Amino acid sequence: MVVLAFILQTIRIAIPYLFAASGGMIAERAGVVSLTLEGFMLSGAFTATLGAYYSGNPWIGLLCGILGGLLMGLVHAVACIRYKADQIVVGMAINLLVVGLTRFFLHMAFDSSSNSPRVPGFGGEGASTGLAALASNPLVWIGLLLVPAMAWLMFRTAFGLRVRAVGEHPLAAASVGVPVSRVRYTAVAISGMLAALGGVYLALDQHQFTDQMTAGRGFIALAAVIFGRWHPVRAAIACLLFAAAETLQIQLQAFEIVPSQFVAIIPYVLTIVALAGVIGRSVSPAALGKAED
């Protein structure tokens, strides 16, 4: 029973990572740095909360969350592709912008600077982490099925070939008729929507939005992409590894064996160690972070 509970909790924690990592993988494969995953997730969580609260329907919230991620993805794409801004700077700026916007509109919509009221969501009203709660949440199934779907999209379709081509050698891709800018716009838009689904999962699973509720998950998802060497299946395995570390952290805090401050850093230490182990051995897409000439 203990092992089963550990596995179920790991899957539950891994779902937002899987969404965000899938989004980050496709954008970076197209040559656009995905430091914006945190902002995409937070915007998805907030717009999903708004949609679910005012409609009373979690599916409307889901659609609103996707639209929120799409909007921020297009902002990122226009800045980086159309105006050729520095992708690192734009990424950090969007993350800070979304934090400010969600805090501002949270106060406007709900007269609170910390959290929204309860909203209808998926997974039951309680904080249950059991099998029934996971199985009843459609976003869990979508997140798990997303891994083979992304592998098929990237390596078995013409669009995936174009994404990989513009991320490796955009000039060569353009010379054979591939619309580099259009492919990158599409990839970043998909990235925004997928990462936003990670935020939607958090908001609708917890039945409310809280200020900065993503808590760095977007950056951990980006680390999973790098650790997985920009491959959807390997990135998903990295997400499960980081989620298992977070589950271990939660369980160790319950036992109070060591000070909670040390336990809380386990997932982040593991992220640093994992990245340190692949630095120098993993090869990023050759045109990553480079604007189209």
Rank of each mutant, 00 (worst) to 15 (best):
I272H: 13
L139C: 07
I11N: 03
A215N: 15
R156F: 13
L134K: 01
I60F: 08
P285W: 01
I13K: 05
G130Y: 07
L194D: 08
A238P: 06
R156W: 08
Q253F: 05
H169E: 06
Y54D: 01
G68F: 10
G23F: 08
A27C: 08
G167I: 02
L35C: 11
R182T: 12
V183C: 10
V178N: 02
V188C: 12
A245Y: 04
A274D: 12
I257K: 02
V180N: 07
Y268I: 11
Q87V: 10
S112A: 00
E168I: 02
R184L: 07
S116L: 00
P179L: 11
V140Y: 08
F110W: 00
F219P: 05
V263N: 02
L204S: 01
L270S: 11
M92P: 08
V2W: 08
Q212W: 01
R103Q: 11
I257W: 01
L63E: 05
L71M: 15
F110Q: 00
S191P: 13
S116H: 00
Q261W: 01
G24S: 06
T10R: 06
H231R: 03
T210M: 05
S136A: 00
V140W: 05
A132I: 03
V176K: 10
F104C: 07
Q251M: 13
L18C: 12
Y83Q: 13
T10G: 05
F242P: 09
P285Q: 05
G44I: 14
G39A: 06
Q249L: 04
R12S: 05
M41W: 07
L50I: 05
V33Q: 09
M92Q: 14
A173G: 06
M213Q: 05
L161C: 12
K84A: 13
S113Q: 09
G68H: 14
V269N: 11
A291C: 09
H231Y: 04
Y83P: 13
D111N: 01
V99T: 06
V269W: 13
L70N: 14
G39P: 10
A52D: 00
T36D: 10
P259Y: 00
L97K: 03
T214A: 12
H169S: 09
V166R: 00
F242W: 10
I7P: 01
T214P: 08
L106Y: 03
G44Y: 13
I279Q: 15
A135V: 09
T47Y: 11
T49F: 02
D205S: 01
N95D: 11
R229A: 13
M108N: 02
A85S: 14
L161W: 14
Q261R: 04
L197D: 11
L241K: 08
T186N: 07
S282Y: 11
L275G: 14
L145V: 08
A149V: 13
M25Y: 04
A276R: 15
I190E: 12
V225Q: 11
L70I: 15
A276P: 15
P285D: 08
E246S: 14
R182I: 15
G123S: 01
L222C: 04
Q9N: 13
R164D: 07
L71K: 14
N115A: 01
G143L: 06
G130H: 00
M108G: 01
